[in-house]
């Protein structure tokens, strides 16, 4: 399995009921850097915790791969995530809204396992779609 395929499975498979299987592709030394998270996610349990957070918020969620570029042991995967917000997400009560979000995962893969990843996606767009970020906000004027 080449690194593009490993990256593709890491992105898509957890959303197809294959989270446990895909953990075989996560190194024990895995470190994931995610915007908005104070600490990186580490190891298989970190991978599981990250995915589970979003699967709780979007139980019908799915990821589709739009493009991939690989060089050496690094692969960049551009993806689109879609799902309906029917579960609590980071304190946000369910809204029933369907969202679409674009992102890129930049992964370093060695010996058939992902060792480090930078997962960057449009969190502002996600929050706008969930109504957590208002398009206008009141400010005080004199």
């Amino acid at each position: 399995m080449d690194i593009k395929e490993i990256s593709r499975r890491l992105a898509e498979d957890p959303w197809q009921g294959k989270l446990e299987e895909v953990l075989e592709l996560v190194g024990d030394d895995y470190v994931a850097h995610v915007p908005g998270s104070a600490e990186p996610f580490r190891g298989k349990e970190g991978f599981r915790a990250f995915v589970t957070t979003y699967q709780t918020g979007f139980p019908d969620g799915r990821i589709t791969i739009d493009d991939q570029i690989a060089e050496g042991d690094v692969v960049a995967t551009r993806w689109t995530g879609r799902g309906t917000h029917t579960g609590e997400l980071m304190g946000l009560p369910p809204t029933g809204r369907e969202i679409t979000v674009a992102g890129i995962t930049y992964s370093r893969i060695a010996d058939g396992k992902v060792r480090e990843a930078w997962v960057i996606w449009d969190t502002l767009a996600m929050m706008q779609q969930l109504g957590a970020v208002p398009e206008t906000m009141p400010v005080r004027t004199t």
């Binding site: 369907e98 502002l124 767009a125 706008q128 779609q129």
Partner: peptide, 15 residues
Amino acid sequence: SPQSRYMPCAECGAS
């Protein structure tokens, strides 16, 4: 400020 390309429909919630 960037605006999301996708927004849920206010009536049916679809993206």
